[in-house]
């Protein structure tokens, strides 16, 4: 069978890719996609922990359900904001919305 560490490593790599995406990308939608990657990496971890280490209480699985819920809400709101941004500034690139500075 597959040991727990494999899941953890997979999750770590996917999470790191998500981090890179968030930091490197300009387009807000792409940043959101990277965030989704990070959330899914976390979910893998949660479910793996629940299945391996905590089969009695399965809190991790329950948490995954909530994360999916919150992620859905977040995506919906964030995309609405992106559309708003685009409508106001004709761009979806976050580095072009840079008026909040010195």
């Amino acid at each position: 069978m597959v040991p727990l560490e494999n899941y953890l490593a997979l999750s770590a790599i996917v999470f790191a890719l998500g981090v890179y995406g968030v930091l490197a990308r300009r387009n807000a939608v792409m940043i959101l996609m990277s965030v989704e990657l990070m959330l899914n990496a976390v979910n893998i971890n949660f479910v793996a922990f629940a299945a391996y280490l905590d089969p009695g209480r399965i809190v991790g699985a329950i948490f995954a359900v909530f994360i999916i819920t919150v992620a859905a809400a977040e995506v919906g709101l964030a995309l609405a904001i992106v559309i708003r941004l685009f409508r106001n500034r004709a761009t979806a690139n976050v580095d072009e919305a840079a008026t909040m500075k010195w």
């Binding site: 968030v22 930091l23 490197a24 300009r26 976050v94 580095d95 909040m100 500075k101 010195w102």
Partner: peptide
Amino acid sequence: LKYLQTGRVPNYAMAVA
């Protein structure tokens, strides 16, 4: 130090990371 406040969200995210 005010130049740290670039107004660019990616910079802030980088700081978080």
